[in-house]
Computed example of a mutant assay.
Amino acid sequence: MLEQSCYDLADRCIAKHGAKPSSLIPVMEDIQDELRYLPGELLSYVAEKIGVSEAEAYGVATFYENFSFEPKGKFEIKCCDGTACHVKKGIAVIEALQKELGLGKDKHTTDDMLFTLETVSCLGACGLAPTMMVNGKVHPHMTPDSAVALVRELRGEES
């Protein structure tokens, strides 16, 4: 069961964009921006309020990769494993981050909700490979050591 503040947030987002079917995506984006994920229970609430079926709302939320039903950490790290990054040893960066954060194939967010680590197919910065992105900021030419140092800096630790 979600807290009332989540429903209040949804109501504010609906008021901002209008209680109409065409507002579905902007409302979902605003909710996810605030909560760092899209709770399924809240998606059902939004669907009812704006006049779309739950199936349609879930269909949209699962179609677009940017929506997540799992809570994300304060720092969302996306590591590229596209061709250029892969060739330039991007996998070693991912493995170093997984080890540092205690994450793996089935666990993407740290228990303290500070970091979420995702592997993506391309960040569109092939000339800067290997790259990673933290909360939308691109970090070029990463090495396992520089990636771990960045995480420690974000944690407030000394590198």
Rank of each mutant, 00 (worst) to 15 (best):
D81Y: 01
F115A: 01
E70F: 08
E100I: 01
C80T: 05
G40Y: 00
K99H: 11
L114P: 15
C80E: 03
A61R: 00
C122R: 08
K137I: 04
L128N: 14
K74F: 06
L128R: 04
E100P: 10
L101F: 07
E56C: 06
H86N: 07
Q98M: 04
E76L: 14
S44R: 09
Y64F: 12
T109F: 00
L117W: 02
L128M: 13
E65S: 14
F115L: 09
Y45N: 05
A92P: 13
L38G: 07
E48T: 13
Q98C: 12
T110W: 01
G90E: 12
M132S: 10
T110L: 00
N135A: 02
C85A: 04
N66M: 10
I91W: 09
G73I: 03
L123I: 13
F115D: 12
G82D: 01
L114F: 08
T116Q: 00
I94V: 14
L103N: 05
M132V: 06
N135K: 02
T116D: 05
Y64E: 15
V60C: 05
E48C: 09
Y37D: 09
A61H: 04
P140C: 03
I91C: 12
A57I: 02
K105A: 12
K88I: 08
M113L: 07
H141F: 05
A96W: 06
H141K: 06
K49P: 11
D81T: 08
K74E: 15
K105F: 11
G40M: 06
D106V: 09
A92G: 10
K78N: 15
I94L: 13
L103R: 01
C80F: 00
T119R: 05
S68T: 15
S121V: 08
A57W: 01
L43W: 03
P130W: 01
A84Q: 01
Q98I: 08
F75S: 13
P140N: 07
S53F: 12
G104F: 07
P39R: 00
T83P: 05
A55T: 15
K105C: 14
H86G: 11
A96C: 09
G124N: 08
Q98Y: 05
K49Q: 14
L103H: 06
P140L: 02
L103S: 08
M133V: 07
L38N: 02
E118V: 15
L43C: 07
P140G: 08
C122Q: 11
E56F: 06
K74T: 10
L97R: 01
V46Q: 01
G59Q: 12
F115E: 13
C80Q: 02
V138S: 07
H108K: 07
D81F: 00
V134F: 05
K74H: 10
F67S: 09
K105L: 08
V120D: 14
Y37R: 04
G40E: 09
G40R: 02
S44T: 10
D111Y: 04
E70R: 05
I50G: 04
V138T: 13
A129V: 10
E70T: 14
T83A: 06
H141S: 13
L38M: 07
L101R: 01
A55W: 14
K49M: 12
V87N: 06
M133N: 12
I77P: 07
Y64K: 15
E54S: 10
E48H: 11
T131N: 11
L114E: 15
A47S: 14
Y45L: 04
C122H: 07
G104A: 06
T131W: 03
K88E: 11
N135H: 02
C126L: 03
D106G: 14
L114K: 14
L117S: 06
K49T: 13
L42A: 10
V60L: 03
